[in-house]
């Protein structure tokens, strides 16, 4: 390897024993993701039969999605175990841009939809 490639310094290796632990975490997260997806599908199919309000179902979906996203990013993409500064680098754009965009754009859309009814 050339002097310029310093990747090896940051590479993670682990032993057989650590690997066992990690595989356990991986499978726990897998069952969690599968369970949440199953819950989402069941709710999507039968929410009318359960007699729950749609707005409640909708927010449940969004919450479950965010939980799923957290587990994928934190454990499968390993972000939870990176440096704090690195975590902020990855998450700051969404806190600043995406959430702001969602709130602004959706408020505007609902407003235009209302205005249409009076035209």
């Amino acid at each position: 390897m050339s002097d310029f490639d310093r990747t090896a310094e940051y590479v993670q290796h682990h032993t057989e024993e650590e690997g066992k632990k990690q595989r356990k975490t991986i499978w726990v997260v897998f069952w969690l993701l599968l369970g949440i997806t199953g819950l989402e599908v069941t709710l999507g199919l039968y929410w009318k039969d359960f007699g729950i309000a749609w707005s409640f179902v909708k927010w449940t979906f969004i919450l479950l999605t965010l939980i799923k996203a957290y587990y994928i990013v934190a454990y499968y993409m390993h972000l939870k175990h990176e440096f704090k500064s690195f975590i902020y680098m990855a998450l700051a754009p969404y806190i600043v841009l995406a959430i702001y965009l969602v709130i602004m754009v959706l408020i505007e859309a609902i407003y235009i939809n209302e205005v249409d009814k009076f035209l």
Binding site: L101, V102, V105, L106, E108, A109, I110, N113
Partner: peptide
């Protein structure tokens, strides 16, 4: 962020 843009645009039209 690109995908966020798409999904937000979808949300806009959907509510519109």
């Amino acid at each position: 962020l690109t995908f966020s843009g798409f999904l937000v645009a979808y949300g806009f039209m959907r509510h519109r």
